Simulated assay, not measured.
Amino acid sequence: MSGTGVDAEALTAAAVQAELAALADPADAVHLQRFFKTGPGEYGEGDVFIGVRVPQTRKAVKAFVGMPLSEIDVLLDSPVHEHRLAGLVMLNGEMARASRKRGGDAARQREIVDLYLAAVRRGRVNNWDLVDASAEFVLGPWLFERPRDLLHEFAASDSLWERRVALLTTFAFIKQGDASTTLELCEQLLVDRRDLIQKAVGWMLREIGKRVDPAILTGFLDAHAAAMGRTALSYATEHLTPEQRIHYRAQR
C-alpha cells in the first residue's frame, strides 16, 4: 500500500494504523519507550510505542494524501505514539498544500490550525519529537503575518509541551529572517530550567546566530548570559568562537 496511493474510501485512520502495524517491531518498541522517557515520573510517562521508526512512518503516510481531517484527528487522539506522529506528518502536508494555493486558502489553514491546537491543548502533542516535527510547519505559516499572542500564552503555560510548541513555532520565523518573537520568548523562558526548554531556548538562539545575524545572538547573550541555564547557554554558544564561548559561559 505504501507509496502507491489508495482509493478515497480507504483514506481512513484505521488503514494508516494497519499500515503501521505491519511495520512494527517489538524490539524497537522497547528501545523507543526507553529513548523517549516513558517510565514513571519521566516526561513521556505512559506513552505507548509499537516500534516504527520515523522514516518508515513518513514513507507510509505518503499513500494517504488527502485523508479527511476528521480521520487525521483520530490518529492524533490515539494512545500510540507512532499514530500521533503519522497524524502530525499528514497535517503538515495538508498545511503545506493549503499554503501553496494561489493567495493561500485561509479557511482551510484555519481548520488545520484549529485541529492542531485542539490536539496540543488536550495533551496529544506530548513529546519533543512530536512538537519538533509539527509546530513550525503548522503554526509557523499561519502566524508569520498574524498576531503571535498565542505563543506568549503557550510560553506561560504549565504544560512543558505548550512551552516547547511556542519556541519551536518560531523556527519558521527564524528561517524567514525574523528573530523578534524568538527573542521575546527566550527572555520569557529564561529561568525555565526544564531540560527540554533549556535545549529549545539554546537551539533557537543558536539558529538566530546562524540564519539571521550573529550580532543579534551576541546582543542577547550580552544582556542575559548571566541568568541563563548551563544547557541553554551551551547550545546557544555552540557555533561561536572558543574565546566567545569562554567569555559568555564565565558570566554564569
Score class of each variant (00 low, 15 high):
residue 97 R to F: 09
residue 45 E to D: 14
residue 249 R to G: 01
residue 54 V to L: 13
residue 49 F to H: 04
residue 179 A to T: 01
residue 211 R to M: 08
residue 51 G to A: 08
residue 28 D to M: 09
residue 227 A to Q: 15
residue 241 T to Y: 01
residue 247 H to W: 00
residue 219 G to K: 04
residue 95 M to F: 08
residue 220 F to L: 02
residue 13 A to S: 11
residue 182 T to M: 05
residue 178 D to Q: 12
residue 107 A to S: 14
residue 107 A to Y: 05
residue 94 E to I: 11
residue 117 L to V: 12
residue 173 F to P: 10
residue 163 R to P: 15
residue 82 E to W: 01
residue 37 K to S: 03
residue 10 A to E: 15
residue 18 A to N: 05
residue 118 A to Y: 09
residue 222 D to E: 14
residue 221 L to N: 00
residue 178 D to C: 09
residue 198 Q to N: 13
residue 140 G to R: 08
residue 182 T to R: 12
residue 206 R to I: 00
residue 141 P to A: 05
residue 85 L to P: 10
residue 136 E to N: 11
residue 129 D to Q: 03
residue 143 L to C: 07
residue 33 Q to Y: 02
residue 57 T to N: 11
residue 101 K to I: 08
residue 158 D to E: 01
residue 54 V to P: 00
residue 92 N to M: 03
residue 101 K to P: 07
residue 175 K to Y: 02
residue 76 L to Y: 11
residue 204 M to P: 01
residue 64 F to R: 15
residue 59 K to H: 13
residue 240 L to M: 11
residue 35 F to S: 07
residue 20 L to N: 10
residue 21 A to C: 06
residue 153 E to H: 12
residue 122 R to S: 10
residue 110 R to H: 09
residue 169 T to R: 11
residue 62 K to Q: 14
residue 153 E to V: 11
residue 181 T to H: 07
residue 148 R to W: 07
residue 137 F to E: 14
residue 72 I to R: 15
residue 62 K to C: 05
residue 172 A to W: 13
residue 250 A to D: 03
residue 229 G to N: 06
residue 160 L to F: 01
residue 112 I to H: 07
residue 108 R to W: 11
residue 45 E to A: 15
residue 56 Q to N: 08
residue 73 D to Y: 10
residue 143 L to A: 03
residue 26 P to D: 06
residue 115 L to R: 14
residue 88 L to F: 04
residue 36 F to M: 13
